[in-house]
Design a protein around this nucleic acid. Structure first.
Lengths: 208, 208, 208, 208
DNA sequence: CATGAATGAGTCTTCATTCAT
DNA sequence: AATGAATGAAGACTCATTCAT
């Protein structure tokens, strides 16, 4: 069996096991066994547990980015945000484990891995920030850009990513909902408000 | 040194270490050392690594609930949501590790612990769902209740908890922001839209 | 509470626990707790786990010897053997744990203890050897002494002690039997044969 | 080195160490070291300390049973008993540790092990009971069967096994004696008497 | 007389990793 | 290309034992 194929098989299993158990609790033994090969092969191909995890991380990260970029890159900003969210929920629907590996590792990783995980998260966040920042900046007359400056976009991106991550669980518990439906609901929550907020409507505690 | 005091000291350190490393990667040795005592004391007082973790979980969970309940329980629904969010961000500001222990464990926990962690998460979610569900249901003329039925409240609660969790990281990276400020920003994102959404304004893909 | 009383209480519990678990698996913690006192008292009174075990050993050994010596020391030799056996089975009936502590420890004891246990076993064996050796030597015309010389008496003593020990289990599983009954049965097995053997009757393989 | 061979080596050493120290006091470390391998191998091949002990137990138990069954299974009943005893003493002469592992563990074993040890002891006892029960029942005119009913055979078996066990120690201290010699002496003690006892001769305390 | 608090040392067990074949 | 055999290092847990009070 050619090397590349084997490698992918190992990574497939790795993603499953890392998602199920977390980095530390996952054992190379289990991964090798589920992959149907012997442990030395894992080390031959992927170097170390860390190497294996990084390979998983990278492949899934690429897949997620690809899913994002496959989504409509043009059109009205809100369309693009919607498309991005829909792509995200679609991706998670299809590859639950990938997202878990990418986003739900505990803080128990070595320096090298932590760095790469941080990088992945930053990329995701930047992608989303681009979506909302650009989206809104470009969105119309141009003067609205002020409200969502770089810092605001980052704030909103964090909120959106967090919400989306959490809604991942909600989806798992509400299997009837389609990814597009979830994205739409989230848009309702966020976009309608944003539209008005950009027009200057605000909320303040103590208002009545 | 009396038992109770020591116990709290151990839990203090436990929360710190579990937050930093995650359940599996945390070692009882390290916790004992940081607590300035020997391992057997940890076992004498907390029974096992699992027992220690559960003790941490429970204490921090209680603290979080207390922080929530200290927030205004009366007033207009949006005031209550704002107060709840502000309380949450305040709590996380003061006890970063607590939230990490409560919410960011990887999937590598034994059955007993997983059950308790699940329970904690469910309670938090229910608290928030209550905030938005009741808040909106009661909010005005009463007829708005329809939009945020039980399922909607659950959806919104997931989105909010996820957003808040993620904004936790944002706060850590933007130390200038006060918890109240973060809560306010999140309210802007969400509440203004909700107000309009409840009035029937919607968004649909492909609209223009 | 006076020291002597406490000491006996501790030894009481010690015998129970050592019998139930064996020397190694018994824990001083458990003994202290069952005795209703704190561990330092155990150490104050008995010095160490080894000291505690030795105290148990000695007390129970004395009790067993006393039980033996209480049995008829005079009379026909076979009467004395019977009385000795009956005393033994009576003792074990009443103090199962004592016998277990005295005779059923695994080989896992430190040098000091092993020596003392060996000594106790030797004393028991000698007592019995005395019973059969003297018994038979003195028994009648005097010429029979030849058959049961010192080595023979030792052999018979080993066989008898082993049989008695094992019958201890049989008794436990046949609660209807009285100690005297068991002793009688054993006498039947052994004495009748011995009477004839002393008269020169033998058995050889291949005889027909 | 192939797995099977190593496994047997480990068990060899296990029997030696368990015999010398007893289950609890034996340490896997020591066994690994004496076997000339590292601890993980022991766990890889035998699973756990318990697993290792059970493996020892089973192998030695099989050996003992084989030794028994190698002994003459036919011939006059007393011949068979003698052959059985001789086989036993021969076995113990050659494999002192085996018998110790099989029969001399303190009461400190976990449930699983205790069950298996109990089973082994029951098998040995049944084997001997079969020897004396059948042996005597079948022995002659047939009418003698009455004396050694099932319960009597069990009693005698206990006595014999106990005696044999104890004589094991005697043998160790009298190295000149051959196993056959010991068996013969024990036959003298027991069989001659039994022959007469079956013919109705009895002994009663107080008789003269 | 009595104990709560504390620990050094040791045991079982597992895991990532390598080497000889 | 592939693996059976092997291990150093580390982690959870327990126990006999001792102070300070």
């Amino acid at each position: 069996m050619p090397r590349r194929v084997r490698e992918q098989q190992i990574i497939d299993v790795g993603v499953r096991v890392f998602a199920k158990r977390g980095y530390h609790a996952a054992s190379v033994d289990e991964i090798a066994e589920l992959a149907g090969i012997s442990k030395p092969m894992v080390y031959l191909y992927l170097d170390s547990k860390e190497g294996l995890f990084l390979a998983c991380l990278r492949r899934e990260s690429d897949r997620l980015v690809a899913a994002f970029q496959g989504a409509a890159r043009a059109g009205a900003p809100e369309e693009r945000l919607y498309a991005g969210l829909a792509a995200f929920f679609g991706f998670v629907s299809d590859h639950r484990d990938s997202w878990v590996v990418l986003h739900r590792q505990a803080a128990d990783l070595g320096a090298t891995i932590a760095a790469e995980v941080g990088e992945v998260r930053r990329v995701v966040m930047a992608e989303v920030a681009g979506l909302v920042g650009d989206g809104i900046t470009d969105s119309g007359s141009g003067c609205r850009g002020a409200l969502l400056g770089k810092e605001d976009a980052d704030f909103v991106a964090h909120a959106l990513v967090g919400a989306a991550d959490s809604l991942t669980d909600w989806m798992a518990r509400n299997p009837g909902e389609s990814p597009d439906g979830v994205a739409l609901r989230l848009m309702h929550m966020v976009w309608v408000g944003m539209r008005h907020a950009l027009d200057g409507e605000a909320w303040a505690p103590g208002e009545r």
